[in-house]
Structures are given as C-alpha cells and as structure tokens.
Amino acid sequence: MPYVFLALAIVSEVAATVSLRLSDGFSRVVPSVVVVIGYVAAFALLSQALTRGLALGVAYGTWAAAGVALVAVIGAGFLGESLSWVQVGGVVLVIGGVLALELGGAH
C-alpha cells in the first residue's frame, strides 16, 4: 500500500514540474494552479507513504529518480527539449542507484 501513495506522489510531482514549465513564469493561471496543487499533493502523498512504513531513503530516492526520468522523457517527447545520450546515461545511472538502495536494504 505505501507504494501506491509513492506512485501517486511521483505523478503529482511530475505534473507540477511540467506545469511549472508551462506556467510561463506563473503568468498563466491554470498551469500555475496545477503547480501549487501538484507539489502540495506530492508532499502529502510522500508523507503518507512514509507513514505506512516505506524507508525514507528508498521513498525519497525513488520519488526523485522517477521524477527526474519522467520529466526528462516528457521534456524531450512533448516540450521540444533535447536529450543527449550522455543525459540518457545519467538518468539510467540515477535509476540504477535507486534500485541499489531498494535491493540492498534489509527487508
């Protein structure tokens, strides 16, 4: 169950971050509102995942890595941003680090 809250926290954070780009310096109302609601929801949901027993390092590492990877892919796929092979390698390394945290922890 804590992973459901973590997944929702990741989705909320990614939506807020993409909306931050779309808000044009908070000059567009709808994306700006999504930014605020998304970040508040992301932290509330992350808090619920932690309350339900997820280890802090694993939860935060997963949240951050998934957020970085998804935002990079969305930026490249839908916002016209570039993504070099070096950047792709960096994202893979970040994800690998989170997997090492998860797999290396005592269960």
Rank of each mutant, 00 (worst) to 15 (best):
M1H: 13
M1L: 10
M1C: 03
A7M: 12
A9I: 11
A9C: 09
S12D: 11
A16E: 08
T17E: 02
T17P: 05
V18R: 04
V18Y: 03
S19V: 01
L20W: 11
F26S: 01
R28K: 14
S32T: 14
V33Q: 09
V34C: 07
V35S: 04
V36T: 11
V36L: 15
V36K: 06
V40M: 14
V40E: 04
A42P: 05
F43G: 08
A44D: 09
L45D: 09
L46A: 11
S47I: 00
Q48T: 00
A49R: 05
L50R: 12
L50V: 11
R52V: 07
A55W: 00
A55R: 13
L56R: 03
L56C: 00
A59E: 11
Y60M: 06
Y60D: 03
Y60C: 04
T62Y: 09
W63Q: 07
A64I: 13
G67T: 03
G67L: 04
A69S: 12
V71K: 03
V71I: 10
V71C: 04
A72D: 03
A76T: 00
G77S: 09
G77C: 05
F78G: 00
F78D: 03
L79C: 04
L79E: 12
L79D: 06
G80I: 06
G80K: 11
E81W: 01
E81T: 00
S82D: 14
L83D: 10
W85L: 15
V88A: 14
G89D: 09
V91Q: 04
V91T: 07
V92F: 07
V92P: 00
L93R: 08
G96T: 01
L99R: 00
L99C: 06
L99W: 07
L99Q: 05
A100F: 12
L101W: 04
E102N: 11
E102K: 15
E102H: 13
G105H: 14
A106H: 15
H107C: 01
H107K: 15
